[in-house]
Amino acid sequence: MNMDSELLQIIGVTLRMSFFSTVISCLIGMPLGVLIGKSVFKGKRTIKKLTGTLMGLPPVVAGLIVYMLFTKYGPFGSFGLLFTVEVMVIAQCMLIIPVVINLTESMTEINAKKLIETAKGLNFSKLKTSLLLLSENKQSLLSVVLTAFGRSIAEVGAVSLVGGNIQWKTRVMTTAIMLETNKGNFSFALALGIILLLISFVVNILASALVREDEE
C-alpha cells in the first residue's frame, strides 16, 4: 500500500520535472534555433559548433555547475532551491536547450528558406509567416519536443546531484532505479525501468496522435 503510493509519487515527480524541463527548453530553444537557422551572420558556424559541443555536455558536469551556483554560499544560494524539483529542472534545461537549438536550427535551415520566399511573395504578415512556418514543420518540431522529453526523463547524473534523491520529494524514476539497484532489489529496479519505458511509449503515442497528417 505504502509502496504503491510512493511509486505513484515518484512517477508524479518524474512527469512534473520532465514536463517543465521540456516546455521551458523548447520555449527558449526553438525561437533561438529558428532565428539562428533563418538568418545569415558572421559567427553562425561558431554558434553551431558551440551548441554541438554543449549537446555532449556530461550531465554530471551540468549538475555540478548548477550545484555550485545554488549551494548555500553560492551566487544563487539565497533562493534555497538546492535539492528541490525546481533546481532539477534548471539543471536539465542546461542540458536540453542546446539540443533543442541545434535540432531546430538544422531543421529550419533545410526547410524554411523556400517557404519564407513563398510566403513573402504572397505578402503574408510576419505573424502569418511564423505561424505557417510552425504548422508546416509540426512533425519535425514534435520530434524535437520528444527528443527533449526523452533526454529529460532518462537523465540521472544531474538530477541526483542537485536533487539529492530525497524520498517523497526529489526522487524520480531514474534515481529510484539507481537506489534499488544498489540495494540489490534488481527485480524491483527492473520493474521501475519497464514503467519508465511505458511512460515514454504513451507520451510518444499521444504526441504523434496530436499532429497526425491525414492521408488522402
Binding site: K114, L115, T118, K120, G121, N123, L132, E136, E213
Partner: peptide
C-alpha cells in the same frame, strides 16, 4: 503599388 511574387520553386502548404 503592391507587388506579388511567384518564386521559381513555390512551396505548396500542407
Amino acid at each position: 503599388g503592391e507587388i506579388y511574387y511567384m518564386p521559381q520553386q513555390s512551396i505548396p502548404f500542407s
